[in-house]
Design a protein around this nucleic acid. Structure first.
Lengths: 279, 279
DNA sequence: GGGCGGCGATACCGCACGGGTATCGGCCCA
DNA sequence: TGGGCCGATACCCGTGCGGTATCGCCGCCC
């Protein structure tokens, strides 16, 4: 299956074999066997190009999910076994720089519980929490709707907040009591920065490129960009930045999420604590 | 992994091997290899009994999910390939005897769409829709909250309705304009029937045993039981049965659900049609 | 148009892993 | 203390997977 996913992604047996660290002939035969076993033609080979059939597209989606599931099984088992003193730790993942206040309250409250499991914190980029939960690198996540997707996860809502525009402190708009989204999106000389997608490339278009929140804030302080962010980030603004409420921007909901089949006691405890802290 | 799940469920190498159709020694070695590969002790063998370690319990949960995922991959691919004329069909699963009116409307509306994919209908027992979606026997399901769980599924709400008590036509309560839950639950001589769990066994306690809706309705008509069910079932009541609203019973929400990673065009079409039909 | 090069399939070979049978070793129980 | 149960080990065998060499096909370019 790993083999098939590699070929389906590369659409090229040679490169796929290279990526898998095997030679090309065994790969060809493996795919052939898979096709015979499933009694399905997965790839159309036309001597110049390899294309996915409809069945192949189905298998690609499903096989990715299946591989993630077995990776998750291996990783979680390894973690459970290697945990010191039989105390199974939980890995909590969230976007770097987001919800830091809530996070601090949650970690403090959880640490204060009797017989609390250890919590390992894992910070990631935007939109990476879902894959991390699915492939077992993490057990629980803090997500921010509507930016993150909760597809396939169990969730509990924690809190909602409005958004603010982050501007250079000296900017004319920084003194306003509030702004509309339209006021901020088209500012000459203050474009929204671009973020790298999951594949590491930046979308085309104008705007400076930023890799994380620190870079973003620095760009704004330098007067090269502006941004719209949840209110709670006001507590971590550095000098040279101003925040102005944007009432018509969508409200942001922070939720705690976990893969539905892995509701271990430790995860359930953490979720309960999170709800208690925010209610 | 299949091997480990078998042993973990049987807690007995001999029986597990038998269930898997292999001999016991290869099974022992396979588990040993797995433990070495994961660097984890999964089972405690004490010459008289086999018990799961904490890591073993984690792997059992995760491995079940992973196995379901690969089963799903195989099944869906097989279906996609064997579909006649390259027209990928969708399997819609729902509880036998539930939502039949909505179902009819949905199927009619969908068949009337241009270029609609074929829909295979699959009826199942209570609470079996989740596993069916997860292991690929079905692609979309109609669920009824709060009876079914939507954990790990993407859903769209379709409709909500109150519940009614189903009583023998001649029963004294059958003439009332409405009832409370408490009026129905403790009726002498009219207990709630018991349903078999997923493992096929009946919970202990009083009440006749029923295997499906037909048996249930017959039991009620015979004056041996009563039941509380969603309003929509009134349209399919046979003679000898009466339905009385129960305003304080929880309202039932019918949702359409699908596994999040498998949002194929055909599934998306069906979901859209379902929303249109019920809005 | 013919030679060339790229690419997937096939042929053939060796090893290693998964499966089988026979047997051992520890433990409970009679 | 011996028998029976159960998992582990020993040993053997076949299949499957991986490797190298080579073929067949088809665009491309000189």
């Amino acid at each position: 299956m790993r083999y098939f996913v590699a070929v389906a992604e590369e659409l090229h047996f040679g490169r796929a074999a290279q990526r898998l660290g095997i030679a090309q002939p065994p790969l060809s035969r493996a795919i052939g066997r898979l096709e015979r076993r499933l009694k399905a033609v997965l790839l159309e080979r036309s001597s110049r190009a390899v294309t996915l059939t409809e069945a192949g597209a189905v298998l690609l989606r499903e096989a990715r999910a299946a591989l993630e599931a077995v990776e998750a099984a291996e990783r979680r088992t390894r973690r459970a076994a290697h945990a010191p003193a039989g105390q199974a730790g939980v890995v909590l993942v969230t976007k770097a720089g987001a919800s830091s206040e809530l996070l601090a309250k949650l970690l403090d409250a959880h640490a204060a519980e009797p017989d609390a499991a250890g919590v390992d914190l894992l910070l990631c980029g935007m939109g990476e929490q879902g894959p991390m939960l699915r492939d077992g690198r993490a057990d629980v996540a803090l997500l921010h709707l509507p930016f993150d997707t909760t597809a396939g996860l169990d969730t509990e809502e924690l809190c909602t907040e409005g958004q603010v525009a982050i501007l250079p402190a000296g900017h004319p708009l920084a003194g306003r009591p509030h702004l509309r989204t339209a006021d901020v999106t088209g500012l000459p000389g203050l474009p929204m920065p671009r973020w790298p997608g999951p594949d590491g490339t930046y979308p085309a278009g104008p705007g400076p490129r930023a890799r994380d929140h620190a870079q973003l804030l620095q760009l704004i302080a330098l007067g090269r960009a502006c941004w719209i962010a949840p209110e709670s980030c006001r507590t971590q603004l550095r000098a040279g930045l101003a925040a102005v409420p944007v009432p018509d921007a969508p409200t942001v909901t922070t939720v705690i999420a976990w893969p539905p089949h892995s509701r271990s006691r430790a995860v359930a405890d953490l979720v309960r604590t999170a709800i208690r802290v925010t209610s």
